[in-house]
């Protein structure tokens, strides 16, 4: 069994895992970071999106061993060290962009990534960019509003 080491939410971690362990299993089971969710088995739903080396990645598409040495940020690592919410988290709260909360971690991580590439997105861009994240509760209406609010807040 291989030992994998990486930096997760700023902390160095190393574990021995089965070869077939996916990154999302490593985060949830080996590190206890259960904020990253599993909503499907075909890499379609986006509930498991995390940041790997600056890119939004579906953590069910990678083996843990493939992220050896990577810098990984999960939803647990998004808020500031003092507990202040990231502008995207705040915008989701302000706009009621979540209901059951299950898709939310992946949705927020994807939305943060979206703004890196499109700092001032229009509604169509937001909708197109988030098509890899399924939400069954909100109808996306308020998620779009939240991303727009976060874009304004982060432009300041």
């Amino acid at each position: 069994m291989p030992t994998v080491s990486m930096t997760v939410n700023g902390k160095s971690v190393g574990k021995t895992v089965e070869d077939r362990t996916l990154l999302v299993q490593f985060l949830r089971q080996d590190l206890g970071l259960t904020g990253t969710h599993v909503g499907c088995d075909t890499s379609q739903c986006g509930a498991c999106v995390v940041d790997v080396n600056g890119h939004a990645v579906k953590a069910c598409t990678l083996l843990a061993a493939q992220t050896e040495g990577a810098r990984v940020t999960t939803i647990e690592g998004l808020a500031a060290a003092d507990g202040a919410l990231h502008p995207m988290q705040q915008a989701f709260m302000d706009n009621h962009a979540l209901q059951c909360g299950f898709c939310t971690p992946g949705m927020v991580m994807s939305a943060v990534d979206l703004l890196k590439r499109h700092p001032n997105p229009d509604e169509q861009t937001i909708r197109r960019e988030l098509e890899g994240n399924l939400c069954r509760c909100t109808g996306y209406h308020n998620i779009v509003k939240a991303v727009q609010q976060a874009a304004k807040a982060m432009a300041r």
Binding site: V38, E76, F92, M93, D94, H96, L98, T104
Partner: peptide
């Protein structure tokens, strides 16, 4: 009113059955 639930869901601290 903004929701009481949201802080835990937005910070990955919800407790779903698989957690």
């Amino acid at each position: 009113v903004k929701r009481k639930e949201d802080f835990r869901f937005l910070t990955g601290q919800g407790t779903y059955t698989d957690d």
